[in-house]
């Protein structure tokens, strides 16, 4: 698989951020008006299922961003004022 450029990563990050915000609007914003009824589906309130569904969507976006953008991000070595270096493990491929 080809490594994404910095620009591509930025674009994907923005897209995922908007997707996440959209999912949040559906789960905790105006989207709630669509399902605000005492209906039960398979014995479970539709509002609960709605919350559960969007929570899964939000987590999937996070997992996707982790895999595509952050998991293999190169970590620069940082030297503190005390001379000690700090670096995350698992540097880039």
């Amino acid at each position: 698989m080809q490594e994404m450029t910095r620009e591509q990563k930025k674009r994907l990050f923005r897209k995922l951020l908007w997707l996440f915000f959209g999912a949040f609007l559906m789960s905790n914003g105006p989207g709630l008006y669509l399902v605000n009824s005492p209906r039960l589906i398979a014995g479970i309130p539709i509002l609960y299922l709605w919350g559960l569904f969007w929570a899964v969507v939000q987590i999937l976006i996070i997992v996707y961003a982790y895999q595509k953008l952050w998991r293999y991000e190169l970590e620069v070595e940082i030297t503190g004022p005390d001379g000690e270096t700090g670096v995350g493990k698992g540097a880039g491929r």
Partner: peptide
């Protein structure tokens, strides 16, 4: 934290485990 990788993995563990705890525990 020791480095960014500690925070990166924490993000993932936090989002998955705690959401599960809330929705299937507290609720």
């Amino acid at each position: 934290a020791k480095g960014p990788s500690a925070l990166r993995r924490s993000m993932l563990i936090f989002a998955i485990v705690l959401t599960t705890c809330y929705l299937f525990g507290t609720a």
